[in-house]
């Protein structure tokens, strides 16, 4: 095992972490606002990948897919929210969560109907198709791009939440929704906006992941669990929690497979069980 090998694993872990971060940040903020978890979050991730695949075929441009798919998915999410989830407000959050479970089943079938059962090839843009030499190590350029994209998203989201009036409003509503509304915050509208924004980010992650994992209907069902683990381990509603959770899950999973191949896949759950037992509120909960 050489230094280059470990460096490669490190970059792999970082790349998976960044993907998880883009996926989980919307979910955790929505959770912090309304105690609502969207079980169909992974479905929007898969939908993003499929819509991106179609946009790539139509326009021939990866970048059009990268920008277009999140917009299309956000519009679909907004529609679903308005016709379904918003109308179930009085039934309680649990009912809304169960409705999103229904969406998981519906979503998989709809995607199978439109795009078929088989995994679709999704190639990285030509500019990022090759490999890069880095400290004597050869690493795929596309994966470096994923890491960079995740870092950019992280910085932009941090600026949004910490440095803008909208961000202060979101933090206040996550801290105490009732008090925020008593000051005039429209918490329901904020929640709607964050729901759509979170789904757009999930779709972005879907497009970004597509050249690495290819595109298939079950991809959303598979990614949901690690995403939820990130949210629980990191703590609900906070950006710091999403960052910490993503890095922990990404690194534990990647290095778990390398160091403990016989337990591969299980270590992440051990991490979750440990968190639930020792720190059930997660590492950095928004509401301490």
């Amino acid at each position: 095992m050489t230094t280059a090998y470990w460096l490669t694993q490190l970059l792999n872990a970082l790349q998976y972490s960044m993907l998880l971060f883009v996926l989980s940040v919307g979910l955790t903020v929505v959770f912090g606002l309304m105690n609502f978890v969207n079980l169909a979050h992974g479905t929007f991730y898969a939908l993003g990948a499929f819509v991106g695949w179609s946009l790539l075929r139509i326009t021939g441009s990866f970048w059009a897919a990268l920008v277009g798919a999140p917009l299309v998915v956000a519009a679909i999410a907004a529609l679903l929210y308005l016709v379904m989830i918003a109308r179930m407000q009085r039934a309680g959050h649990l009912a809304q969560v169960l409705a999103t479970l229904g969406l998981v089943f519906v979503g998989v079938e709809v995607m199978r109907m439109i795009w078929g059962d088989f995994a679709l090839e999704f190639s990285a843009p030509p500019a990022l198709a090759g490999s890069v030499s880095l400290f004597g190590l050869v690493y795929p350029a596309y994966r470096l791009f994923v890491i960079a994209l995740g870092l950019v998203a992280l910085v932009l989201l941090w600026l949004l939440l910490e440095r803008t009036a909208l961000g202060a409003m979101i933090r206040a509503a996550v801290d105490n929704a009732a008090m925020a509304s008593a000051l005039g915050v429209r918490v329901d509208r904020l929640f709607f906006a964050m729901f759509c924004f979170g789904c757009a980010l999930a779709a972005l992650a879907g497009v970004v992941a597509a050249p690495i994992f290819s595109v298939y209907p079950g991809m959303g069902i598979e990614i949901l669990i690690p995403t939820l683990i990130v949210v629980v381990v990191g703590g609900l509603g906070s950006l710091r929690g999403a960052v910490a959770g993503s890095l922990l899950v990404g690194f534990v999973d990647t290095f778990g497979q390398v160091l403990l191949p016989q337990l591969s896949g299980i270590v992440v759950y051990a991490l979750l069980a440990l968190t639930l037992l020792l720190r059930p509120q997660g590492l950095f909960p928004a509401r301490a």
Binding site: H93, I225, L228, V232, I266, Y269, L272, L276, P280
Partner: peptide, 27 residues
Amino acid sequence: ATVRARDIFYIMATLAFGQMGYVWVVR
């Protein structure tokens, strides 16, 4: 393990424990 978890936390915790069994059996 879930005695302190409520509502949606309970959903997520049980979801994860079930999936842990799945991964374990598959692997």
